[in-house]
Nucleic acid binder design. Sequence first.
DNA 1: TTCAAAAACATTGATATCAATATTTATAAT
DNA 2: ATTATAAATATTGATATCAATGTTTTTGAA
Lengths: 159, 159
Amino acid sequence: MIEAVSPLPPADVLHVRDTCLCFAAQRAARKLARRFDAAFRPLGITNNQFSLMMRLSVPKPTTVSELADFLGIDQTTTTAALKALERGQLVILTPDDKDKRIRRPALTAKGANLMHAALPIWRAEHAQLDVELAGKSTVIRTALDRLAAPTPPSPNRKD
Amino acid sequence: MIEAVSPLPPADVLHVRDTCLCFAAQRAARKLARRFDAAFRPLGITNNQFSLMMRLSVPKPTTVSELADFLGIDQTTTTAALKALERGQLVILTPDDKDKRIRRPALTAKGANLMHAALPIWRAEHAQLDVELAGKSTVIRTALDRLAAPTPPSPNRKD
DNA sequence: TTCAAAAACATTGATATCAATATTTATAAT
DNA sequence: ATTATAAATATTGATATCAATGTTTTTGAA
């Protein structure tokens, strides 16, 4: 059996590097994460925690799974994220009366106060980002939403 | 001292939810990561490992730091990623002759072979993605590259 | 009613990520 | 030549992420 040990053709490598949307998305997301993490650092929260708690700022009752859906993350990731916020007393999880499987996450007073402090920070950072993107923000967000949209059904895909 | 315990105004919450580029980027990146992770799973690698090894498929000698720069990740993250690939014998780290601080990562024969198997998988998955995006791929990639671009210098920012 | 299937959440193990910090080596200034 | 600084990499500790799997509770079908 002949095994290839040669490197890939340079043209192929360059093509992947210059066109891969997955790679481009990871890189862009990391960059923005670092940026907003830095902005929120004085408050002791990350950009992820901000997004999660922003969802909890809507009075509507929520579940762990609904939260996961909204954030686009796994349910197990959500459980882990909530645990950290619980430790910091920013979020409290209350068992549901009707359905004993459900634990409803909600902001504590401390968490709500923190969001009041976080909002102007988000505003300032995002305004600066908008300036840097010179009017392209909407186009970019539309593109990102498209990437996050559910995969359209296809006869070739087994989900 | 009066402390606000009320939730944020619903209009503010919705505005953040609907406009935050950081959140949109995280969600899109996670979605694509899951997708390509699944595609590469038969090979036992992740989308991140694919991107890293793709860079190593360029014959040009590299360093850990240069790799970090290219991937847009921290140098410490790169060290950790290389460690996993080393364990799998897909990558080997060789001390540099001239500069004893430098360890040069390179694909092993096993790693190169794996990339030969990975390329058609990437092609197929990306082609499918392109179809789903209905001709918007280039626009989207341009947007992502813009987000990943270095922050333009500003008198207000201290880097 | 009983019981199988589904739903909600948690746990484990692995990679991924970065800030803060440490270590080793090279470079530049004195 | 010494020494201070910078550069390259590694380590630690925390959150982030998901697949696989387990547990408890609910729901639906026989």
